[in-house]
């Protein structure tokens, strides 16, 4: 039972991570980024490519490479396309632009890599186990959990403790006044988009170590990210983490009772929570 809980927490931390990226985008740019799932897949494939090219590459470098690659693409996309779409009064336009970008990235991946499932080979890390308090844990999940926890801590520190974080919060609250105070709003937007894409890629690498990915995985991951954001609340980093952990636990526990359930019980749980909140009127 402890093993199941541990697995659920590990998966949940990753869900929290992909949710955090989406929440950042939604909370600050006010754009529902439908291309978020594709960044998760992109991150995974960049890691697969890096490992295929240089097998001895240490894990931190793989993670950093995927983060940087996705962040660069995220910033470019924001500056070149989404920022312009945000100028229109209708917020739906920006969302539909990210939808078009998602279709492009997904089919670009399909075109270059094919539809096959790929796994990320992490050598002995996948089998290694450590004993802790009379209980044996896999090393890979522990590492995953550690990286996710570190990412969350750094993100919280970045947003609440630094000058950049203050600018981000100012742009989120009142973009017009922030601009008057000399903050370059478009630059903050691009940096937030980069951060969001980088977090997605980070989670994508870690997800690819657990299970294989294909260009079609992005859609399923986007849906999870949404559920985490909606349950956790926009602009609440801790809430997003808790929601991610909760959904991860639901998935792992449900799979114990119904092995081929997939994401069904996660979606059902989310839907029930949503309806419950809607009916009690506690919905933004």
């Amino acid at each position: 039972m402890i093993d199941v809980l541990f697995q659920g927490l590990t998966l949940g931390a990753l869900y929290g991570l992909i949710g955090a990226g989406l929440a950042l985008n939604f909370g600050i740019l006010r754009v529902v980024n439908l291309a978020h799932g594709e960044f998760i897949t992109l991150g995974a494939f960049m890691a697969v490519g890096l490992v295929a090219g240089q097998a001895a590459l240490p894990l931190p470098l793989v993670l950093a490479g995927a983060f940087a690659g996705a962040a660069l693409l995220g910033a470019l996309m924001q500056a070149a396309f989404v920022e312009r779409a945000m100028a229109f009064r209708d917020p739906m336009v920006a969302m539909l632009v990210t939808f078009g970008l998602a279709v492009m990235i997904r089919n670009g991946l399909l075109e270059t890599l094919g539809a096959n499932l790929r796994g990320l080979d992490v050598g002995g890390l996948a089998q290694a186990r450590v004993d802790f308090g009379g209980q044996s844990f896999g090393l890979l999940p522990l590492v995953t959990l550690g990286i996710a926890a570190a990412a969350f801590t750094l993100l919280a520190a970045l947003i609440f403790r630094t000058r950049f974080g203050r600018e981000v919060r100012a742009v989120s609250d009142r973009p017009d006044i922030a601009a008057m105070m000399g903050i370059r709003v478009a630059r903050v937007h691009a940096l937030v988009a980069a951060l969001s894409a980088g977090l997605a890629a980070l989670a994508g690498v870690l997800l690819a170590m657990r299970a294989s990915v294909s260009p079609f995985s992005g859609v399923a991951h986007l849906l999870i990210a949404f559920e985490v954001v909606v349950l956790g609340g926009i602009g609440r980093i801790r809430g997003v983490l808790v929601a991610g952990l909760f959904l991860g636990l639901v998935q792992v526990i449900a799979q114990r009772f119904d092995a081929n359930a997939g994401m069904l019980y996660v979606h059902l749980t989310f839907f029930l929570a949503l309806v419950l909140r809607a009916l009690t009127g506690r919905l933004a």
């Binding site: 917020p91 969302m95 994401m263 069904l264 979606h267 839907f271 949503l274 309806v275 919905l283």
Partner: peptide, 27 residues
């Protein structure tokens, strides 16, 4: 039920409904 959800919440909520119905259909 769905119209208690606004804008993006409605869009995603509908998507979740579609996923749930598809997976129940499988079963």
């Amino acid at each position: 039920v769905m119209f208690h959800l606004k804008a993006a919440y409605f869009a995603v909520g509908m998507w979740v409904v579609a996923e749930i119905v598809q997976q129940i259909a499988y079963k």
